[in-house]
Structure formats: C-alpha cells, structure tokens
Amino acid sequence: MTAHTPARPRKKKSRRGKFLIITVLVLGVLLVAADFALAAAGEYQIAQRMREKLQLNEDPNVRINGFPFILQALRGDYTHVRIDALGVPIKDEQQGVDLRDLDIGADLRHTRVELADLLAGNVSKATIDEVEGSVKIKAPDLNRLANQVTPFDKLSIEPDNRVATPTPADPLAPKTTAAIKLSGQTNVAGKVVTLTAYGQIALVSGAIQINIANIELDDISLNQIVPQLRQALAIKIDPGKLPFGVTPTAVEVESGAFKLTGKITDVPLVQR
C-alpha cells in the first residue's frame, strides 16, 4: 500500500504572485501619473513666465521633454524645453515692424532651476545654457506688406525646388540665403492676372530681403508690367529680435512661411 503524498499549496503562491504583479503595475501607473502631473505643473509655471517675457496675449505651449521628469527635477537641469506661440502680432512703430501672424518657437537646452523654485513660480535665478529661437513669417503678412505697393492677392510661399542647393564650404555654417517661389494674383486695368515669381531671400542685418529674378504671367501680353511687379515684391521684412533676444543668423523657406533662426548661450529664463 503506497503512502499518499499531499499536494503542494500552489494556489496560495499563485495568488500571491498575481497580487505582487498587480501591486507593481498599480505603483508604476501612479508613479507615471505623478511624474506627468509634476511636469505639467512645471510647464504651467514656465508658460506663465514666458507669457510675460514675450508679451503675449495668452500662455504659449510649453513642453518639458524627457522621461522621467522627476530625475531632471532632482538634478535641477531640464535638458530640453520646447516653447511655441502661434499667431503672435508684433508692432514697433519706431523700428517699422508691423507683423500680425508670427509663429514663435524656442528650444531651451539645459534650463537650470530647482524644482521647489519652479513649482513656486520663482524662476528669477533660472538660467539656460543655450536657446535656439525661431520666427516664421507667413503668407498673410507677406501679402499685406506687398499690397501696400501693388494690389496682390492670394500670395503663397514655397521653396523653389528647381534650384539645387549648393554644397556649402562649411556644412555647419548658418544658411543666409534660400531659393523661393511666390505665387498669387494681381490686378491690371481691372483684369485679374495670375503670376509665379522666382528668386531668393537673403538675411540682411537680421531682416529678410526678397529678391525676385523672374516672373511668369498667365497672360504674356502683359509682360511689360513684370519689372513693376519685380520691384513691388522686393520687400524687406524685419521681425525684430527673436525670443530671448536671439539675433537671426539663418534663414530658410518652408511651405507657407519664411523662417528665421538663431542661437544664444548663457541666458536667464526671465529678465532680472
């Protein structure tokens, strides 16, 4: 007669293991939620300060990149903060700046501020190792400025993809010119004429200078007005300083906009 071997209590161990897994998952979810909540609080405080600094009508969009946030917070070093503000008007009568629909952006590399100060909104001592600022000047502002000289309508901005980009001697050097294609309409003696203009934009003393090389009209019988249109589109657009007082050093053409960029190092998050 063989002895009966009692079965091992596997159910208790199985339940214990499931309980531990569920506990770990719940704690993980809570930690992630807490991390995002702290990041959101920090983003809100930076947005408030940026609204004052950039003199905006509403809070910009602020994103503190990198996960987990708490590790950056404990170090007091936020490796990459992205700030965006859309549809920003800038008017300075003394400087002759009158733009109504700018997109402003800034990438902040290594923003240094203690977590307690950040959450309290006390960022007077906060510094940034490097800021890359940008401003986009969009077609509606170009159309309005061009319309002050000659009646233009529906002007659009595109890169001129017919032109091969030359290989620069220094690949790291900022690009100060870019090929452009402008399309739109004008009115000649009560007749609507469609035009396509090709040329380039150049960075001149922190401003964009448009230079048109040639213009194509849908009605070649009106080619005598091409020199007039070329002159009317030779517009200089000065957006002033970029965010954080950055001086523009590079220019490029995107679909629908001219973009100015520049960098500055060792700057305060807010003016002292």
Rank of each mutant, 00 (worst) to 15 (best):
L86K: 01
G199S: 02
A73K: 06
L86Q: 04
G245V: 13
P159F: 00
N61H: 13
V163N: 02
Q209N: 14
L38S: 03
P227K: 00
L38T: 06
V32W: 13
L38R: 01
G76N: 05
R82S: 15
K154C: 05
S205F: 03
A178R: 14
R230C: 02
H4C: 03
A146Q: 01
Q209D: 13
P166E: 08
P248M: 09
A41S: 09
R162C: 01
I70G: 00
E252T: 14
V267M: 07
A34L: 10
T196A: 13
N61T: 15
T111N: 10
K13A: 14
L74G: 05
A146Y: 09
V251K: 12
K11N: 03
D141P: 02
L145W: 12
P268L: 14
A169G: 01
L203C: 08
T249Q: 15
R272C: 06
L260Q: 13
L38C: 05
Y78I: 05
N147C: 00
G184K: 12
D117K: 13
Q148G: 09
L30E: 08
A178Q: 07
L155D: 00
D84W: 05
T2N: 09
S134E: 13
V81Q: 13
P243T: 12
I235F: 04
I208R: 05
L172V: 05
L155E: 02
Q231V: 04
V62D: 14
R15I: 15
A234S: 14
L260R: 15
S134M: 03
E93Q: 08
Q55P: 00
D153F: 08
A41Y: 03
T196M: 11
Q72R: 07
Y44E: 10
K12V: 10
I210H: 09
A40D: 09
T5D: 08
I225R: 09
L38V: 08
V204A: 04
A234Q: 14
L56H: 09
L20S: 10
V123K: 00
F244N: 14
Y44L: 13
G42A: 09
R162M: 00
N143Y: 05
A85G: 05
D117T: 07
R51D: 03
P174W: 14
A73P: 01
N187M: 07
D101R: 14
L99Y: 07
L182G: 01
V192W: 09
T177G: 05
N57R: 01
R49E: 06
N161P: 02
L182M: 01
K175F: 04
S14L: 10
P243S: 12
A47D: 11
T177N: 07
H110R: 15
A178E: 03
T194C: 03
I64A: 03
G199L: 02
A179H: 06
V97E: 13
P227E: 05
Q185M: 06
V251Y: 15
I83V: 15
I90H: 09
F36A: 04
K91Q: 11
D103A: 05
L118N: 14
L242A: 07
G133C: 08
D98I: 06
V188E: 09
A106V: 07
K125L: 09
L31A: 13
A146F: 03
V88H: 06
E93K: 12
I208M: 11
R15K: 12
L142I: 07
K236V: 13
T186L: 01
T79K: 09
Y44T: 07
L115I: 14
R109V: 08
Q224C: 02
L242P: 10
D77Y: 07
I180N: 01
R100P: 00
I83K: 05
T111P: 04
L108R: 11
T177P: 06
